[in-house]
């Protein structure tokens, strides 16, 4: 068990390294001199000094090494112009994005699981076909469309919820926090429901064909319990993996939704950094997202093997 996990962990570290290395390389391929961006009107002398200060005169690998060293020590760098530290920006924006994604993930699963279970059980029924058609349509509905529809009707036309970009932190005022979060969360959740529901449904349909389901039935276990105790458990393992992999889509969705609603989360900050060509900051953001994604999946991998006795034992034997 420890060995496979060490191996997995090493591979994930490798992924983060490769991703950050590539993005770092891309920033260096940029046309234009970052120094000229910081002090556009500085003298050649000043520029040269700044270049040495920033380490821009060193070879590429050394620059990457320095960035990596700082990053590992928790120094995420600075914005070019204002000397604003990336750490402060992350401190305020990351919790907002995490909150958004957690809510979305939670509600998506909360709705998708009962839907998936019941439609699988009644596969082919009117209810199933209706739910399926709805979900298929939801899959084709990009989250920015949902976001814009909400912004137009709920926000602008009917003025039910605020569209302004203030997010009050949850501890300060939970209710306010929710009124600001509601629309972004809905926009992010809808598509995820469809993804989870459809995967769970087809997985459950397969599970319900398994012999052990007939065994449970032959024991006189009521249908409800068979569905939730016997069939969902193995299917939920796949759902769990999918939920982990889906974090990638969730991050992408959060970036879009935050931009549409002006939510001051990491996604919004990333796009701002892109537009302002704040490459050092961007570099750290990308790294943080990669780490976030990889960590979630690593955690799920561990959880998975805790939940699935077959894997658990295979590992402890190995």
């Amino acid at each position: 068990m420890p060995r496979t996990f060490t191996l997995k962990f090493l591979r994930l570290v490798l992924v983060v390294l490769v991703v950050t290395f590539i993005t770092f390389g891309l920033t260096k391929l940029q046309p234009g001199d970052p120094v000229s961006k910081i002090i556009p009107f500085g003298t050649a002398q000043q520029k040269a000094e700044l270049r040495t200060d920033l380490g821009l005169d060193k070879p590429f690998i050394a620059q990457y090494g320095k960035w990596l060293g700082n990053f590992v020590q928790g120094d995420f760098g600075k914005y070019y112009d204002s000397k604003q530290s990336v750490n402060t920006v992350i401190k305020t924006s990351l919790p907002v994005s995490l909150e958004l994604m957690l809510y979305a993930q939670f509600f998506a699963l909360l709705i998708a699981i009962p839907l998936g279970v019941t439609t699988a059980y009644r596969a082919g029924s009117k209810y199933d076909r209706g739910a399926n058609a709805t979900m298929f349509a939801l899959l084709a509905l990009p989250n920015f469309v949902v976001a814009l529809l909400l912004a137009i009707y709920v926000g602008a036309k009917w003025q039910l919820l605020p569209t302004q970009s203030n997010v009050i932190p949850f501890p300060l005022n939970p209710l306010d926090n929710w009124t600001y979060m509601l629309m972004p969360v809905v926009a992010l959740t809808l598509g995820q429901i469809a993804v989870y529901m459809r995967l769970l449904r087809s997985d459950m349909i397969a599970t319900l064909q398994e012999d052990f389901i007939t065994t449970a039935k032959a024991k006189g276990i009521p249908t409800r319990r068979i569905l939730w105790r016997h069939a969902l458990r193995p299917s939920s393992l796949t759902l769990l993996t999918v939920a982990g992999l889906n974090v990638g889509a969730l991050i992408g969705g959060a970036i879009v939704v935050e931009n549409v609603f002006g939510v001051p989360g990491l996604g919004k900050r990333i796009t701002e950094a892109i537009l302002a060509k704040q490459y050092p900051a961007l570099q750290s953001y990308v790294a943080i997202i990669a780490i976030l994604y990889v960590t979630v999946n690593f955690a799920i991998d561990i959880l998975y093997s805790v939940l699935d006795p077959r894997i658990r034992n295979a590992r402890s034997v190995a």
Binding site: V19, T23, V247, G248, I251, G252, G253, I255, Y293
Partner: peptide, 10 residues
């Protein structure tokens, strides 16, 4: 192993 939209954005 990397969020697709972030990759494209980058």
């Amino acid at each position: 192993a990397f969020p697709q939209l972030v990759l494209a954005l980058a």
